[in-house]
Computed example of a mutant assay.
Amino acid sequence: MPTPPRHVVHLIYRFTTGGLENVVVQLINNLPHGEFRHTVVAITDADHQFVQRIERKDVNVICLNKPPGQPFALYPKTYRLLRRLKPDVVHTCNLAALEFMPMAALAGVPLRVHAEHGMDMGEINTKGSRYLTLRKIYKPFVHEFIAVSKPLQGYLQRKLGVAPAHVHLIPNGVDTHMFRPPHAQDPAPPGFPFERDRHWVIGTVGRQVHIKNPLMLVDAFIDLAQSSMDGTERLRLAMVGDGPLLGEIAKRVRAANLEDRAWLPGVRGDVADILRSLDCFVLPSLSEGTSCTLQEAMATGLRIVVTDVGGNAELLEHGACGSLVPSGNVEALKLQLLQQLRGSGHDQAAAALNSARERHGLSVVMQQYRELFLGRPRSVSAAAARHEP
């Protein structure tokens, strides 16, 4: 008699455009369909357009519609839901979802896995003491932890006190077939206003929120565009994504009279095509785990400039695959962009492309998650060791 597929419930705060949410979609679409089935439980809500990225037709997306405030009022509803779903695995991401792990334990879920993808603004602003205390409270309800970068792995082991055997370093993966260097015959994405070769396009993809610090890139672009230095007349800016800072971004661009040189299309479903239309990718974040969009830019063969936070340096092999600048330092970002505009960065881009293909392909990452969700954590650790640089 064939073994029924293991039921994985992915419990996350909101199911919308974002890095950790993209990982959940990758898991659903790429883990062997005969071995796993999936349910997504969004603590708040889900974006209908983002849900369409799920290719399987047997996946339910359930929204708990949590109001602002503490999670405890939703505990009974979550417990009843998990008792009804009877998952083999509950997979939570980041602190907001970790707070619901006691209900998974109470519901008798056999395997409880928690993934840390990075810190939020609250943790950065308070130096994380309160959030560390919360994680310590919920730690006993988790069997296995995932860290997407070495800094997060160290945090879980040293700060949280998780035994090394139960912390699994699994960086995010990238689909190197979808995200690839451009071909001469590739058409421009719909609505893309700039011309290849004539313009030099700096771009980023992500949520326009404080922790991603998009205003650092906007300010650097405005200063360079208004500088009259040789070559800067070619500069153009593309910022893909939505969020509370989008209005401020548009306001600063408008005040600088650069509206015809900046493109702010909001959320897009054709990110791979847009990345192939850029010349340089910038990630100005205040905090990162392993950035999915950075990996996608690497697989596209772009010149790259990022802030030296979280897992960025590790991903770029400490400068071999792209340039690192201090977080919040607009002058340093301007200098790097100017150097890239004037021709540097080709070797780094080639190294980034090779690294994405060799170290961060989806097949490697999916196998590690597969082993973990099947209850074989030692196999995960061995696989991670084999792919250490």
Rank of each mutant, 00 (worst) to 15 (best):
P4C: 02
P4A: 03
P5C: 04
V9S: 00
L20I: 09
N22T: 14
V25Y: 07
L27I: 05
L27E: 12
P32Q: 13
T39H: 03
A46D: 05
F50T: 11
Q52Y: 08
K57A: 15
C63R: 07
P67L: 10
P68D: 06
G69M: 14
R80D: 08
L85V: 07
D88M: 04
M103C: 15
L106C: 12
V109I: 12
H117M: 12
M121E: 15
M121G: 02
N125T: 13
N125W: 09
T126S: 15
T133Q: 14
K136T: 09
P140G: 07
F141T: 13
F145P: 02
A147V: 07
L152H: 05
L152G: 01
L156E: 04
L156K: 06
L156P: 04
R158T: 12
K159A: 12
L160Y: 08
H166D: 13
G173E: 09
H177C: 06
H177Y: 10
R180I: 03
P182M: 01
A188H: 14
A188E: 14
P189V: 02
P190N: 10
F194C: 08
F194V: 03
R196C: 06
V201S: 03
G203Y: 00
R207Y: 13
L215V: 05
L217R: 04
A220I: 06
S228E: 15
M229F: 15
R234Q: 14
R234P: 05
R234L: 04
G241D: 09
I249V: 15
K251L: 14
V253Y: 11
A255H: 13
D260C: 09
A262T: 06
W263R: 11
W263K: 07
V267A: 15
R268F: 04
G269A: 12
D270P: 04
L275N: 00
S277E: 06
L278G: 01
L286H: 09
S287T: 12
S291H: 10
E296M: 13
V305F: 11
V309G: 10
G311I: 01
A313I: 01
A313G: 10
E314N: 02
L316Q: 05
A320Q: 14
G322Y: 00
N329L: 03
A332P: 11
A332E: 12
L333S: 01
K334N: 05
K334L: 05
D347K: 10
A350M: 12
A351R: 05
A352K: 03
S355M: 02
S355H: 01
E358V: 14
R359Q: 11
L362M: 13
S363K: 10
V364A: 06
V364L: 14
Q367Y: 04
Q368C: 02
Y369R: 01
L374N: 08
G375R: 14
R376T: 00
A385I: 13
H387N: 15
